[in-house]
Design a protein around this nucleic acid. Structure first.
Length: 322
DNA sequence: CCGCCGTTCCAG
DNA sequence: CTGGAACGGCGG
């Protein structure tokens, strides 16, 4: 009965029952108890709740990445121990000025994976999209919103770092193009040609860690607009920076993703909206990632070396998958 | 409302 | 201690 869409580690949000209360479009019965969880410490309650929450997962479907089977779900009821034993039943009376206590939710791997996956192709979600996503992931709208915002900031900072870092390295050979059309240059890359294009077209890219260059690969990138993102009729791949990746990944890891040229209006969790998804990174155990990705049954491929990258390029250019 | 951005502060 | 979810303030 283990649904593979575990809920977060704690309640959505603590303040205001800002709960997922979108009466109109909430596919699944939100079980999140928005009760003031201020006093918390009742981890058990949270646990129970979470369990309940996870069950009615509607279309969790295939977003299962076998990362850690239950590491996220596992009920580490970390016995608080402190007070709580005594008659600390605050009832709901003085919730007025209870010491503000944040509950730092720990998203499950599955949730994070889905969030990242979405973020990677879409930096800004519309209200409805967020609602949908939150419903699917069993998170509150606010959580999703916050996550995306934090992610954007994280991305931005990462970019800034990379910029200054690589700026001293390569600038000469390849013109450094920052994709600053919209904001302060979130997206950047190294193009041999010095033309700055509004959208990534087919270009010649120079790898950062090796001096490889590849061409003919049509890199497409969604625009970072606040709008519902201009869909550039998805070419074949999308290029993203690994900002959102977990810390295990190191700086220069790349992620590319093959996307079906379909209009993927679907919440991305649909059956075929998620297409061959390739990742290449430098320093990570290929076996690990490969294993988990393979387990996900999505034909993931992983490369850890420049040589592997070549393969990848050939692969993507030739498009074996007919 | 929203996003941005600095900050807070909990979980690991 | 760090990472990051959540917060609050500000501007649009």
């Amino acid at each position: 009965m283990s649904v593979d869409l575990p809920g977060p580690h704690s309640l959505p949000c603590y303040g205001e029952a800002e709960a997922p209360n979108f009466g109109d479009s909430s596919p699944l019965p939100e079980v999140h108890g928005p009760e003031e969880n201020y006093s918390c410490l009742q981890v058990s309650a949270t646990e129970l709740l979470r369990e309940e929450t996870a069950s009615p997962c509607p279309s969790s479907v295939d977003l299962s990445l076998q990362d850690s089977p239950d590491s996220s779900t596992s009920s580490k009821v970390k016995l608080p121990g402190p007070e709580s034993a005594e008659g600390t039943e605050k009832k709901g009376e003085d919730k007025a000025h209870v010491k503000r206590q944040k509950i730092r939710t720990v998203f499950s791997d599955t949730q994070l994976c889905a969030l990242r996956d979405r973020f990677q192709r879409q930096k800004y979600l519309s209200l409805q999209q967020m609602q949908e996503l939150s419903a699917i992931l069993n998170l509150s709208y606010k959580q999703v919103k916050t996550w995306f915002q934090n992610q954007r900031m994280k991305c931005k900072r990462w970019q800034k770092n990379q910029w200054t870092k690589t700026n001293s390295n390569v600038t000469q050979d390849s013109a450094f193009v920052e994709y600053s059309s919209f904001h302060s240059g979130y997206l950047q890359g190294f193009l041999n040609t010095s033309e700055s294009l509004p959208m990534w077209g087919s270009q010649t890219w120079t790898n950062t860690w090796s001096n490889q260059t590849w061409t003919n690969t049509t890199w497409s990138k969604q625009a970072w607009s606040n709008e519902t993102w201009t869909n550039p009729a998805w070419s074949n791949q999308a290029w993203t920076n690994p900002t959102w990746s977990n810390q295990a990944w190191t700086n220069q890891s790349w992620c590319s993703q093959a996307c079906n040229s379909q209009a993927w209006n679907t919440p991305f969790l649909g059956e075929d909206s998620l297409q061959p998804y390739m990742q290449c990174q430098q320093n990570l155990l290929a076996s690990d990632v490969e294993a988990s990705l393979e387990a996900a049954g999505e034909g993931h491929t992983y490369f850890s070396t420049p040589q592997g990258l070549e393969l990848f390029l050939n692969y993507s250019v030739n498009t074996p998958g007919e």
